[in-house]
Amino acid sequence: MQNFQPLFDAIVSGNAAEARTLTQKYIAENVNQELLVKDCIIPAMSEVGRRFECNEYFVPELLLANRAMKECMKLLSSSGPKVGRVVIGTVKGDLHDIGKNLVAAMLEGGGFEVVDLGVNVAPEKFIEAVKAKNAQIVAMSALLTTTMTAMQATIDAFKQAGLRDQVKFLIGGAPITQKYADEIGADGYSDNAVGAVSLAQKVLSR
């Protein structure tokens, strides 16, 4: 059984250079890349998320761990199989991206190909990206109650474009609830980044 503990520790401590070196070493040893993601990278990011929620970690630690994880995924993503393709972004009018970045990172760690559109993303941008990348999931984030309505506007825009049935909508962010997700006709809601991965896997299997 391969020992992934050194890589786990490198990601959790935010050591990007060490994470990259260890990932290269595992690839050279022909480890099962899916196993590496499932048994090491996802648990490491889950631990980072847990520490963040418990106020043991703060935004700087979160970003360092995220960067270390991305170094691993850059090396793995070119060769590893993809579970599905997700277009993600913070909705129009909202410039917050820490939660969105963590969800994107977790989805990558979970084997998804992620197209990150950034912040302040208009409905048309989501539509363009879905068409260009043939994505199955649109993940939207909002941190402000004033920008929540942009989620509804985006789903409506997909309906008008005749694309609603082609994608699943996942939403999240501080003011978002399951009730709101149901109201606007989203396919799923998660209140944390770890849950977003299993939710994405679930909606794809429906």
Rank of each mutant, 00 (worst) to 15 (best):
N134I: 09
L117S: 04
V87H: 00
V115C: 09
G80N: 14
M73P: 09
Q201Y: 11
D97W: 05
M148R: 01
A122D: 10
E34V: 13
E56L: 10
V12P: 02
K159T: 15
N3W: 11
R51M: 14
I27C: 11
N30A: 12
E183T: 11
Q201N: 15
H96G: 08
D165E: 12
T145L: 08
L22R: 00
N101I: 09
I41M: 12
S205D: 12
G185C: 00
F52L: 06
L144C: 08
M45H: 06
H96W: 10
R206T: 15
G110N: 07
S77V: 10
V87C: 03
Y57I: 02
Q2L: 14
V115P: 10
D9Q: 10
F8M: 04
L35K: 13
M106G: 03
K82I: 15
G109P: 06
N55W: 11
P175N: 02
M45D: 05
A196P: 05
E29H: 07
G99C: 10
K92W: 11
L76P: 09
K38L: 15
A174L: 09
I171Y: 02
G188P: 02
G111E: 05
N66F: 09
A19C: 08
S190Q: 05
Y26R: 07
H96I: 06
P175M: 07
V119E: 04
K202I: 10
A104C: 00
M148P: 04
L35V: 14
D116P: 04
G110I: 06
G80T: 14
K82L: 14
A174V: 04
T21N: 15
M151F: 04
A44P: 01
C72F: 07
G93Y: 03
E108Y: 03
G84A: 06
P6F: 02
V12E: 02
S205E: 14
G99V: 00
T146G: 10
V48D: 02
G185D: 08
T90Q: 05
V115I: 13
K92N: 13
L35G: 13
A200G: 07
A161T: 06
I176N: 01
E47L: 10
L102Y: 04
E47S: 11
Q201H: 13
K70P: 10
F58T: 09
L75V: 10
T90A: 01
T154S: 10
D165G: 14
N55R: 08
V12A: 08
I88F: 00
K38F: 08
M69H: 04
V167E: 02
L36I: 05
E56F: 03
L62G: 06
S46N: 14
A132S: 15
G49R: 12
L102P: 02
S77W: 12
S78K: 12
V83E: 12
P43Q: 05
C54G: 12
L76T: 07
L63F: 08
N134H: 14
N66E: 15
E61A: 15
Q24V: 10
I11M: 03
F4I: 11
L107V: 06
V31L: 10
A186L: 03
A157Y: 01
V91E: 01
P81W: 05
S205R: 12
V114K: 02
G173Q: 06
T177A: 00
G195Q: 06
K70I: 12
P81V: 07
E18Y: 09
D94P: 00
G89R: 00
C40G: 04
L35Q: 12
R20M: 13
